[in-house]
Design a protein around this nucleic acid. Sequence first.
DNA 1: ACGTTATCAGAAAGCGCTTTCAGAAAACGC
DNA 2: GCGTTTTCTGAAAGCGCTTTCTGATAACGT
Lengths: 345, 345
Amino acid sequence: MSERAAPAHVTLEVVARHAGVSPATASRVLNRTTRVRDELRERVLAAADLLGYIPNAHAQALASASSRVVGVICHDVSDPYFAAIASGVMRAASERGLLMMLASTFRDPAREIAYVSTLRAQRARAILLISSGFQDRAWERAMSAELDPYLRGGGRVAVVSRHRTLRVDTVLPENRAGGAALARALLDLGHRDFAVLTGPRALTTVSDRLRGFRDALARAGVDLAPDQIVEGAFTRDGGYDACSGLLQRGLRATCVFAITDVMAIGALAALRDHGLRVPEDVSLAGFDDIPVVRDLSPPLTTVALPLAEMGEAVMALALREPPRRRSRVARFDGAVVLRASTAPL
Amino acid sequence: MSERAAPAHVTLEVVARHAGVSPATASRVLNRTTRVRDELRERVLAAADLLGYIPNAHAQALASASSRVVGVICHDVSDPYFAAIASGVMRAASERGLLMMLASTFRDPAREIAYVSTLRAQRARAILLISSGFQDRAWERAMSAELDPYLRGGGRVAVVSRHRTLRVDTVLPENRAGGAALARALLDLGHRDFAVLTGPRALTTVSDRLRGFRDALARAGVDLAPDQIVEGAFTRDGGYDACSGLLQRGLRATCVFAITDVMAIGALAALRDHGLRVPEDVSLAGFDDIPVVRDLSPPLTTVALPLAEMGEAVMALALREPPRRRSRVARFDGAVVLRASTAPL
DNA sequence: ACGTTATCAGAAAGCGCTTTCAGAAAACGC
DNA sequence: GCGTTTTCTGAAAGCGCTTTCTGATAACGT
């Protein structure tokens, strides 16, 4: 049994020797850091090509104390909201020649912190938290405990969504204003009785949207009955279940606001399953404007957020030079898009 | 201007010194590779905790010649098909304590190859190609040129979709059989006149589905008129445009098959915009069963693929021990799901 | 023609770990 | 009770690069 030795890895040194230069020179040629005599340049390039040289990114990172990867942490890649933002991040990363490490927490806040630690170990150039703003004292403390040393060590951090105490660059969808704008638009349609399907209250995304919505109603003298506010999981089925529960217990509203489009999709199904027509019997509105909702029927009224743009922004924010001491906030307005899922009363 | 020196990084050596042991011992404790006297163990752990030690993954990878990251290359994170598969991969990765590097090619085959090279440089433990099977002689040659040395060096590769000559582990959705099953189901409904919205023919995903569909029709003595087959981009808008073109030039079919659900969503919109009702005027079917299509109205008839499962499978295939010499194929059947978008003739 | 500055290349010192290798200490056998 | 095996720990050699630092040439000015 002849064991074939693993083909010796082609290292920089091998390339250098083959080209008759020192590793230092080879490195300089391959990284274009310094002028090198043309003749040597050619020889190195030819040797690298011939030998199929692939640099070892780990060695490079170790020696140069910097890496080309950015870490992105989101709740769920398969959720269209995060997918859209991640797509924007991806575009921004590839423009800069950076690689993206993507982690799904599957909505477990503890895992979010664990991933930050892992990304620190990877010496990620930046860590981007594409979250929904989990507002929990202990959690934010633990998160800060991870983030602060990382920042002090030169790491970059930016987040999407409002956090209470995290002092980092933030991409802030104007959830509160968006909720208010939506409420006004619905009031304009003549609605006075509303129901809301919320997600977990611990998320700022949820509480901000709800607050904006409720405040705008109040300003118009309209009350939101507590029993018409139902909490559900941040998923399609969460929306379905929340809406079903509401219908069971008695829906007293002419218009339902689902705190995210994803939940609205579930709500639409629940309403339909319950024999209600949208918008004839009840109007329905969502939030986010994920791509698919315009193709529902009826197309969903929602608050449009520039998700891909937000993804690019969070990357840009994290990487901007020089790193500002004060953390900055990039605000993104939501635009109410009235579609056929809402009708005048 | 007092310059505050960057806080010296906490390295293994610092931890070791603080615990009064050698770096070797500290390493052993932190990696549980060998028994270490309990007393020393405690001291090392305490020191690591106290100092907030974060290992340097690059140094680890370099020294141990192995890394904990797997690379995943797909066309577009924000496409629900890829997102669903990526989600499965993500789950499989996190179960194994691996990190996922995700790259979008934005449908550029050249970029796919470039990313493989980059992932090679990252010494990714495995490279997963979540593609649609680009069948191009030159491309496959170039891809093999990247993959073969990687495999020889101990790398693992697995792909989703059929490729003509790539000799790697494959997760194979039974596109052809699925297309055939769908055709039979539609024939059973009484349809005899079909139109097909295809994606780029260069993709095996497209050609296999089309072939299965067409063959099954032929077997039933039904012809597919060439002018009723329209090619569009692999996106919602591609489906919309293709369908619009078809309608413009005259649709002579009672049933339209869109080669993917994403395209079907666009087609549905186009049909509607053209004043046609689905399924009363024309039936519509897709392929994939991405989550949202059951919530369209009418819900879309389609061929259901276990996308997340396929994602887990492609990871499992790549990582299975020992690495088999012969490449293996994991087949996944599609199940026809009849929903309201198709009606008996 | 000679000193001076500007270019370019190589030697060598790490970057922060893992992992042999070998030695010291402890446990064992008879 | 002494050789032998077993356990545990440390020294040190790398992993494959980047990057000073230094020296050798070449280009320049006068």
